[in-house]
Design a protein around this nucleic acid. Structure first.
Length: 602
RNA sequence: GGUCCUGUAGCUCAGCUGGAUAGAGCACCUGCCUUCUAAGCAGGCGGUCGUUGGUUCGAAUCCAACCGGGAUCACCA
């Protein structure tokens, strides 16, 4: 993967490394490579914040593990103020970082957004939705959309300018099927007359088509045709194919129907996107892009990158361990790959400063993108190395795979509605919201329900296929979005009280032994920029999701065992308020990176 | 068959640039609301990290083979 973004340098490690190098020089007369040192956070059962494993250095030190660790520890303690003390357990050097360091860090964190990196000056395009216009969005689209949108937010936080893009597959045989079925069986009904969302109505006729098609096949089978013949010869299919030809010939009537039904579909999609909370900067319609690429391919033939065989144009990727692939059919028409080649080129033309292009598409297209990227590289585009397929695994149901034909797809609108209703049911049972207006409640339950779905889909490593268990996803406790929202609401409750009591002066923070609960929270805050950087480099929201959970879990533990407002020492109280405030800000921003909103009360 | 992804607790998932007795959530069991929001906290139960070899001082992590799950390999989109 291209590493465009600068590596985040952990501020603690960047201070430790040079002194460690000095230590190795002074103690063992060895020039230590900075990359040879790996830090790990100290396991909770030992005292310390950072741990260095000295086993790799035994050859250099010429001593056993414990004396080596001891010597390094002593050197660090003597030469670096932020090293307060240390202990050695077997080959592990556990370093305790001085409270003053943590306090200074907290002060800094209070003044800056830890999760907003300086501008990189880079522009990145993220394509994260590519629906067909013949059926409504479902659970699979939801993973795709939330994943890509979150990645776009993460990249933005990491300092990049982001262009969010949707590709709409608005032409082809699939939409003709819906159109034909509507013409035949629709009786002129519209989303308005029927009271149905536009995408649902179009989807309904896609199903109608399939039903009629199957019926015709059965009749043909009964008439003695083979299955294959029947599938090819069913009159309604032939009619749909004829309609596609008419569409391509710009037949006004077909085009008008096409525009009308696609319009219904877009209205439906837009309503779904609104509820999802996602937006696009640029839409690409396949009806406009499907003609692209042909000239680029012919250009490639001239350059000798592609070759002709049997009248068709091929690319040979056998050297790359792949196969040969047709790019233009014998009749000169395009295949899917052709238009993807053209569209990629067009995008870089449209956005001259673009440095990276990310396609959020399911892993069933891994091969397709591998081939696409190789082809663009062969055509000599300098940006070909900056193309990335953000591939994600399929979403399975407890009953198995989702199959539209078997009616087992989970509809996006239905699922969101169900989750919001579940949030309402549990929220009203808790009866903490008596002074909320009905509108406020509705907004809150919307926020909670949506966070449950989004977090559930985002906490899993994108490349793995995942199981969507409706019963588990509806859970609002434990490792869930609502749990994180709840913690945020807790911090806000505290900070509101401060507002009315005016006890928070933001004055200098004193020095005293930090409590373990406080340290745990500080360490997780301290690690967060590195986590965001990792998420941006790996294009993986799950690392951000999981670390946010770690943070709020530690904060809850702190909250439940350490007094904040009730602390009598004003300096400690202020420190804990500052800590709470910082946790709140970071949590809010991290959730923003996931495309999840966070409530002031719940 | 070739290629790619994947296999960790009853279930869903972290950990995988090699390092200390493998972590969470759910489920099940025990405590904790006259005290800053109990959508919470504290604790218990629960694992031959698919199998077998190899590399290493050290392997869930790297390598190989095998087994299981998935995807893909159209002059389809």
């Amino acid at each position: 993967m291209p590493t465009l973004r600068p590596m985040f340098q952990d501020r603690l490690q960047s201070q430790l490394v040079p002194v460690l190098q000095q230590a190795f020089k002074a103690l063992f007369g060895h020039d230590l490579d900075a990359k040879a040192i790996t830090f790990q956070s100290t396991r909770p059962e030992f005292e310390g914040d950072v741990t260095i494993n000295v086993f790799p250095f035994l050859k250099v030190s010429g001593k056993g593990p414990e004396p080596t660790a001891q010597a390094i520890g002593e050197y660090l303690q003597a030469n670096l103020d932020l090293v307060d003390r240390f202990n050695v357990v077997k080959g592990f050097l556990n370093i305790v970082i001085a409270d003053s360091y943590w306090l200074a860090f907290l002060r800094e964190a209070g003044q800056h957004d830890l999760l907003q990196f300086p501008a990189t000056g880079k522009k990145v395009m993220v394509e994260y939705a590519s629906p067909n216009t013949n059926k409504p969005l479902h659970l699979g689209h939801m993973r795709n959309i939330f994943l890509g949108f979150s990645v776009s937010r993460i990249l933005e936080s990491a300092g990049n300018e982001v262009v969010r893009v949707q590709v709409i597959n608005d032409r082809g045989i699939h939409i003709c099927k819906s159109m034909l079925a509507w013409q035949k069986f629709g009786d002129g009904e519209t989303p308005e007359s029927r009271g149905l969302k536009g995408d649902k109505l179009v989807g309904k006729y896609y199903v109608e088509f399939d039903r009629a098609y199957k019926k015709e096949i059965e009749e043909l089978l009964a008439g003695g045709r083979t299955k294959e013949e029947a599938e090819k010869e069913a009159p309604i299919l032939l009619e749909a194919q004829a309609m596609l030809l008419k569409w391509e010939a710009n037949d006004p009537e077909v085009r008008a129907l096409w525009a009308k039904m696609n319009g219904w579909c877009y209205d439906g999609f837009n309503a779904t996107y609104d509820r999802m909370g996602v937006t696009f900067d640029r839409l690409y319609y396949e009806s406009q892009t499907y003609v692209l690429g042909k000239n680029d391919v012919l250009e490639g033939v001239k350059k000798g990158v592609f070759y002709e065989k049997d009248g068709a144009v091929w690319v040979d990727n056998t050297k790359e361990g792949l196969d040969e692939k047709v790019l233009l059919r014998r009749d000169g028409t395009s295949v899917y790959m052709t238009q993807d080649i053209g569209t990629a080129i067009k995008r870089f033309e449209e956005y001259p400063g673009l440095s990276q292009l990310i396609y959020t598409v399911g892993n069933e297209q891994d091969y397709h993108f591998k081939v696409l990227f190789i082809i663009l590289k062969k055509l000599g585009f300098s940006w070909a190395d900056e193309l990335h397929h953000l591939s994600y695994g399929m979403v399975d149901l407890p009953s198995g795979k989702m199959k539209s034909r078997e009616g087992t797809v989970v509809d996006a609108d239905d699922l969101m509605e169900e989750m919001v209703q579940e949030a309402r049911t549990s929220g009203e049972q808790l009866s903490k919201l008596d002074d909320f207006t009905e509108a406020e409640k509705t907004a809150l339950f919307e926020m909670i329900g949506m966070s449950a779905v989004k977090y559930y889909l985002l906490k899993v490593d994108p490349k793995k296929r995942m199981l969507f268990d409706p019963a588990a996803s509806i859970d609002l406790q434990g490792h869930t979005g609502p749990f994180i929202q709840y913690t945020y609401a807790r911090t806000q409750s505290l900070l509101r009280k401060v507002g009315t009591m005016d006890v928070w002066q933001h004055e200098h923070l004193g020095t005293w032994p930090l409590l373990p609960e406080e340290r745990a929270v500080l360490k997780l805050l301290h690690q967060f920029p590195g986590v965001l950087n990792e998420g941006a480099n790996r294009l993986d929201p799950s690392v951000v999701a999981n670390h946010t959970y770690e943070l709020v879990k530690a904060y809850n533990s702190f909250y439940q065992t350490v007094p904040v407002m009730k602390e009598e020492d004003p300096a400690k109280r202020e420190f804990r308020l500052e800590l709470s405030s910082c946790v709140a800000a970071v949590t809010k921003k991290a959730m923003w990176c996931l495309g999840i909103e966070v409530p002031e009360r719940m």
